[in-house]
Nucleic acid binder design. Sequence first.
DNA 1: ACCTGAACACCGTTCAAGT
DNA 2: ACCTGAACACCGTTCAAGT
Lengths: 242, 242
Amino acid sequence: MARKKPDSAPALSMGALSKGALSKERIVAAALAQIDRDGLAAFSLRDVARTLGVYPTALYWHVPGRNALLAAVVEHALRDIWRPRGRLTWQAWLRTLFHRYRAAVRRHPNIAPLIGAQLVSNAGIGPELVERILAVLAEAGFAGDRLVDAYNAVVAAKVGFVTMELAAVPDEDRARWAAAMRARLGDVDPVRLPVLARNLKRLGNRAFILRWENGTTVPLDRSFKLYVEAFIAGLERVRART
Amino acid sequence: MARKKPDSAPALSMGALSKGALSKERIVAAALAQIDRDGLAAFSLRDVARTLGVYPTALYWHVPGRNALLAAVVEHALRDIWRPRGRLTWQAWLRTLFHRYRAAVRRHPNIAPLIGAQLVSNAGIGPELVERILAVLAEAGFAGDRLVDAYNAVVAAKVGFVTMELAAVPDEDRARWAAAMRARLGDVDPVRLPVLARNLKRLGNRAFILRWENGTTVPLDRSFKLYVEAFIAGLERVRART
DNA sequence: ACCTGAACACCGTTCAAGT
DNA sequence: ACCTGAACACCGTTCAAGT
């Protein structure tokens, strides 16, 4: 841990608007830009410091460490993913939430692994969105423990598809790896794996486990839509049961 | 890249059964054990080498590198998650697939982030499972592009919840962080966030975004069940539409 | 208050050399 | 065929010192 940063107002003596002034916002912006450009695997504090023209250790005055910075990056990228209710049905509101979330992550696809797989990133989500989801589900008829369960199901469904769709591609020898995947598909035995063999052309590079590019270059729009419609229709069904 | 390993049979001169003999299997087993014990963030090739009593560079004869080793670890942990069809309906078979998958990952919870978030890990899944899912969905009435979409929806749903449930907890100052999360919950304003405030006790540490432990210590069994039932019921519904 | 500068204890990966 | 051993180019983070 770095020394604790006091909560007092920032010093004005140095000119907060001067181009050289470091701040948490500038660090987060630089970090996000670096991740967008080079990917998450290549991310390093030292690189961020280099682009900002400061010593690596200078960052520690504004940010507690690497993980906290990544959490802040996620928070920054996911501002404003929800809209006020308006006159939408609960189903329609959930639908727009799912699609807006996916659109937001697709603007910074390389951060996707951070969201689903790291508990820290949750810290930045903000309770207003939680309230909206809970309110909508309560109106749909969920209450008590079932409300908690429906909420967890919604959040998991929202994040799940997008995380997989934008899963990190191995940075090393991409071409080699793509060729190996293609070869695997070519070797499919139509006797042992008939349905797979029959649909190979449709599935190749467009289905999980059978692709060599991720959603950045090959988006799965149609599949996402079916996924969302199925999940919402399913919620409608289960809310009726005990 | 390391020098290319020839495909010829392993040398018998050294005694393949001797305890000291290195092999890909022993390396994968040691790596998995280390991840189970210390978590993914602490994983290092050098540590694996230390526990095996060899120089770090010795690993490179058997494994191309760090990422490839992690992919092999995932493959090893996820063997045998599916069962033959038997007399189950397609809905029942999907249900058991989801629950068996979750059970398999829960045996090695720290690998969860690798599965959903890394495209490499897909390489080890095996096309038999793909075929089974496709066959079941074809029987349910999906065909053509809709078959691809339903398949993607199933795989994303299967992996999504579990990845989130077992999201990595920050290793540094866990107690501090848990306290901060508790404090956030205590500060919820019942006027601005009424539904959240009303259900605080139920949601605290048991709902995504509002918890400070992951599924290793606080499993979300009931929520997972609702999630699976909703998704399968939803698939039933959407298959009827065009 | 905010940053420099040196230092520590690590990494993954390469390459040549041994046996 | 399989491993040692040295070396390279990195990391995140600490601490004391400057201004």
